[in-house]
Design a binder for these strands. Structure first.
Lengths: 149, 149
DNA sequence: CCATCTGTAACCATAATATTTACAGAAGAA
DNA sequence: TTCTTCTGTAAATATTATGGTTACAGATGG
């Protein structure tokens, strides 16, 4: 797999939690929706708890709940929280410093990559978990007539 | 490593070839600049030849050369040529269709992801191999005073 | 107490990539 | 023609990221 699915799964889970703010959801229930293992869910939610998005309650009637307001959580916040890095990556081994191109290519690329990444992030900051939930709910009611809601 | 370095290495190689349009460069020479194995270079260049960016010449005095004009090659062209996919990826296993969120989350995400990807590509299309070469050359001459040239 | 859940470690499986060796064949040069 | 230089590829191995699974200690409410 080329990329991590953590971002997608995190959005899925946060949307699920946003749809059930009154009572906590267990990692097993969440895993049932995501179609994965409860431990995978707990690992990811543990990360999101560290970043202050959710809280957990052990023991009977425990589970996970949203802490922050779903329309105060942007997709960019989530992306950063799950450590989804840049869509670009430099050479594994440093290029040859004796070659003029090798010595300067990374510096040249850093600027371009940075610009592209900022454009990406500018889009992600436009959407919140709340918007995502509304979109999912509208689809569940069959109210989607436009491609991008 | 989170992501493939193919895109970066492809840009490095194409910039190198753009700096030596008169005579072909061998995979061994190129590998020396990139600091990797000649076979890795040949595999990647084989892909770029299929897409019409470069040509190869076997035998004595052979090597690789640019076919297209370096300012007619955008970073987006290269990105697509090396099969660098979307920076986002959906669930590994399909979410639970019995869950309203599970059933609709992918549809909701497709729109957002598409928008973000288009923003990214709109940036990549602004830069060409020629621009990259100029940027590298300016750096080689110590003429870089601005962060993003 | 007991059933329910989190928190985490440990281990295995999988997939994408990169690295390396090896060698057949093409092609210019002597 | 023969030699040397390169490409074109296959094959085997190593590395890394990720995901899936089992196991179990500890917390907690009923």
């Amino acid at each position: 797999m080329n990329l991590s699915t953590r971002f997608t799964v995190a959005l899925h889970i946060l949307t699920l939690l946003a749809s059930s703010r009154e009572e906590p959801l267990t990692s097993e229930y969440i895993a049932g929706s995501v179609n994965t293992n409860p431990v995978v869910v707990r690992r990811l939610l543990g990360l999101l708890r560290q970043k202050g998005f959710v809280s957990s309650q052990p023991g009977n009637r425990g589970g996970w709940q949203l802490v922050r307001n779903p329309d105060a959580i942007t997709l960019l916040d989530v992306r950063r929280a799950v450590n989804e890095g840049s869509p670009f990556s430099m050479h594994t081994n440093p290029p040859n410093p004796a070659c003029p191109v090798g010595r300067n290519i990374q510096g040249a690329l850093t600027g371009v990559y940075g610009q592209a990444e900022r454009a990406l992030e500018a889009e992600l900051v436009q959407t919140t978990i709340q918007k995502l939930l509304r979109s999912v709910q509208a689809r569940a009611r069959g109210l989607i007539f436009l491609a991008y809601l």
